[in-house]
């Protein structure tokens, strides 16, 4: 069964007036509108948020200053090591 890769988005919620947006998790959606609707359904079912942001995971550049040097993975520039963050040439085949 072939499940196509659907883009990955990170979800941020501002739960109360005055607070900043906090990362809540991620989800898959084909476009921004679906991502936002899905985020509403998955992350705010209990009326938990007053504002939602969805950002393509690929668009986020990350660094973590907690631990420098060797302890930090060289893949640091992405939020995390996800298979679809990295372009595998078609010739290489399924990976």
């Amino acid at each position: 069964m072939n499940l196509k890769n659907t883009p990955l988005w990170e979800v941020f919620i501002r739960s109360k007036n005055g607070l900043s947006h906090v990362h809540a998790g991620s989800l898959h959606a084909v476009d921004a509108d679906m991502a936002l609707q899905n985020a509403r359904d998955v992350y705010t079912r209990r009326a938990e948020g007053i504002s939602l942001w969805v950002v393509p995971s690929n668009a986020i550049k990350a660094s973590d200053p907690v631990d420098r040097g060797e302890f930090f993975e060289p893949t640091a520039s992405k939020v995390y090591r996800h298979p679809t963050f990295y372009d595998i040439p078609d010739e290489v085949g399924h990976m």
Binding site: M1, L3, G25, H28, Y80, R81, H82, P83
Partner: peptide
């Protein structure tokens, strides 16, 4: 369903894709 989605999302941060897990 929501819990499944939170957890798939957490697993993906380790480098496995949702599609792979579902397969």
């Amino acid at each position: 369903a929501g819990h499944g989605l939170y957890l798939y999302s957490a697993a993906e941060t380790l480098g496995i894709s949702r599609e792979e897990m579902e397969s």
